[in-house]
Amino acid sequence: MTPPTPPTVHLAPRVALARLPTPLERSPRLGAELGLELLYKRDDLTGLELSGNKARKLEFLLAEAEAARADTLITCGGVQSNHCRATAFAAAKRGLAALVLLRVPDPSRPPALEANALLDRLAGAEIRWVSHDEYRRRAEVMEAVAAERRRAGRRPYVIPEGGSSALGSLGYVAAVAELRAQLPEAWRTGPLTIAYAAGSGGTGAGLELGVRVAGWREARPVGFAVCNDAAYFRAAIAGLCADARRRWPELPEVPPAEISVDDGFIGPGYAQTTDEALSLIRHAARADGVLFDPVYTGKALLGVARRASEPGGLPSSRVVFLHTGGAFGLFPFAERLARAE
């Protein structure tokens, strides 16, 4: 059955990159085990090379880049950044060059190319390894690289970490409308939890704006932090929403106090995970035939599973899990996953 066509966000131009609408699937077994009515919004299926939530953001960002006649995309992320890989392939599809800054402990001794970093190179992106200290100044460093490119006669366009900007967040304003149109009629009224992994704030900002644009008061986005704490993400998401509202005044206000972020499942840190999360990833693959990753969605899934067992741990037992992708991030954890039980 073909899902109904969702309303379109008309605030800014977009180019077609993602395969939309993405499927909405019922959890065959895991949801019942957790005592939840669980649906997966399969944004891991926005494509293969462009898989995950980044594709929705890049549709708006590349439209702006092309309107500015840019010929080079510059962005940044961790060594296994899904966003950098998606940007590299988006650039290749649109005939643009890409340069990605990847964070590593020692740029003089970069890691072997594998998983997302390998795919960056396969797509033709130039990789620059940067230290953790340089990455803390990533906006400044990317602007310096852009200035270097301008001096060489190129026309660069800088995309922030994760594609998280007011413009990029429109991808998830549109996704909320798409989701609501796909839901069973009974799910469109009454309390609903929309669970997602919070990595840079752009997806959360789009969801918070989207449920308000739709007047969908019963839907409560809940972000599970994969790095940084809840206060950081509330501020980041509120800031992106405020930026969007300054650019498009018709958008609603999003008070920081209304933004829900759970920072209980970060584990040892960004791009690191726990045996508990790996065990759940393995179990979900066997129970539901769905792949989650250790860096983003696995942490969010663990958060949902743990909070489901606590009274009031989730806004409701009816949950849509926004699967934002990341399957390539499984491969660096191959040895630990093989022994996770």
Rank of each mutant, 00 (worst) to 15 (best):
L179T: 07
A181Q: 04
A181C: 07
L183E: 07
L183G: 10
R188E: 04
T189G: 14
T189I: 05
P191V: 13
L192I: 11
T193N: 02
T193R: 01
I194N: 06
A198I: 09
G199D: 05
S200G: 09
S200D: 09
T203S: 11
G204V: 05
A205E: 07
E208C: 14
G210R: 08
G210F: 12
V211C: 07
R212E: 10
R212W: 08
R212F: 08
R212P: 09
V213A: 07
A214N: 08
G215I: 13
R217Y: 10
R217E: 15
R217I: 10
A219K: 10
A219H: 05
R220F: 11
P221G: 09
P221Q: 10
V222S: 11
G223P: 02
A225D: 08
V226Y: 02
C227K: 12
Y232N: 10
F233H: 11
R234K: 13
A235C: 14
A235F: 14
A238N: 04
A238Q: 03
G239C: 13
L240V: 14
L240R: 13
C241G: 07
A244Y: 04
A244T: 05
R246D: 15
R247T: 14
W248M: 08
P249G: 05
V254I: 14
P255L: 03
A257Y: 05
A257K: 12
A257E: 15
I259K: 02
I259G: 06
S260Q: 14
V261A: 01
V261P: 00
V261F: 01
D262E: 15
D262P: 03
D262A: 08
G264K: 02
F265G: 00
I266S: 03
G267S: 08
Y270W: 11
A271F: 01
T273V: 03
T274R: 03
D275G: 13
A277Y: 01
L278M: 04
L278H: 00
S279I: 00
I281K: 04
A287S: 14
V290M: 10
V290L: 04
L291A: 05
L291Y: 07
L291C: 09
F292A: 01
F292M: 01
F292P: 01
V295K: 10
G298Y: 01
K299G: 00
K299E: 00
